[in-house]
């Protein structure tokens, strides 16, 4: 039976893992490679690395880091953050990443989704969507959540998968960093609307929150950062707990 996936997310800035709250107030959470290795040992099912470094030298430093990750990590990993072109995607995949996550660049130029999917296959393209509940509607935001768009989250997820995205990484900006649980409503709606796997993100604060999102929605993965980085929810404990809740999980 296909298992639900537990996915630690490492936000990278200048080669360090960092973590913000509601997309702000960034604090240091250690060396990404060491942290990633710990997660593999603990039984993480996949890893996501999001590079939030904003420099011109970025691509070069990122490909170097991806190389190091690929040499140390024997589970699948996704890399995102500032991938604006097929050339960027080629550099990251060529350095050993399994998947590319794109967000703002896909909103600004949706054809980028198809270009990467046609080159590397749909399974390589993760469409990351940052959604915020505004005026009774879940709307898509871009540029690290700073800029509102006209897109509704469910519509954008559908468009993205039609263009070739093989997976949706859905982050609720309202829930992110709050530790009050995942946004099950929008995660449920998006995962019903598309026929590709959906990863829920934003708001994990307890083991029960993971069980909730897996039982209330069709999400097949759940992503979190700070609860893992700072040891609040050890992954082995989380997985044992999910198994007692009859959720299919890899132990």
């Amino acid at each position: 039976m296909l298992k639900k996936r537990i996915i630690p997310c490492l936000d990278i800035q200048n080669n360090r893992t960092v973590k913000g709250i509601n997309f702000e107030n960034i604090r240091d959470a250690g060396d990404p490679i060491e942290l990633a290795q710990r997660y593999v040992e603990e039984g993480a099912d996949e890893l996501v690395f999001l590079d939030i470094t904003a420099t011109l030298e970025k691509r070069k430093t990122l490909t170097k880091l991806v190389n190091r990750i690929a040499a140390e990590i024997n589970i699948p990993f996704t890399v995102g953050g500032g991938i604006n072109s097929l050339e960027d995607a080629k550099a990251i995949i060529g350095s050993g990443a399994d998947k590319i996550s794109i967000n703002s660049s896909a909103i600004l130029r949706p054809d980028l989704i198809s270009e990467i999917a046609n080159t590397f296959g749909n399974q390589c393209v993760v469409l990351a969507i940052d959604a915020k509940f505004v005026d009774n509607e879940w709307m898509v935001f871009r540029s690290g959540g700073r800029i509102a768009t006209e897109l509704k989250a469910v519509d954008w997820a559908k468009i993205g998968t039609e263009l070739g995205a093989g997976e949706i990484l859905l982050t609720s900006m309202n829930n992110d960093g709050t530790k009050n649980g995942f946004a099950c409503d929008i995660t449920g709606r998006v995962s019903e609307a598309v026929s590709v796997p959906v990863i829920a993100s934003g708001g994990a604060g307890s083991k029960a929150h993971f069980a909730e999102v897996f039982t209330k929605t069709k999400a097949t993965g759940a992503l979190a950062a700070s609860v893992f980085h700072f040891g609040e929810i050890p992954i082995p404990e989380l997985k044992q707990f999910l198994e007692t809740q009859n959720i299919p999980i890899r132990l």
């Binding site: 298992k3 997976e167 590709v196 796997p197």
Partner: peptide, 29 residues
């Protein structure tokens, strides 16, 4: 159901040297 089939899944196996020390409950990506 969801396609691609993405994630960890197990298999039932016939005997093969390829699967030595691997159990049916083990998941692969």
């Amino acid at each position: 159901d969801l396609v691609p089939h993405t994630g960890w899944n197990n298999f039932t196996s016939m005997k093969s040297k390829l699967f030595e020390n691997i159990q049916a409950r083990n998941d692969f990506y």
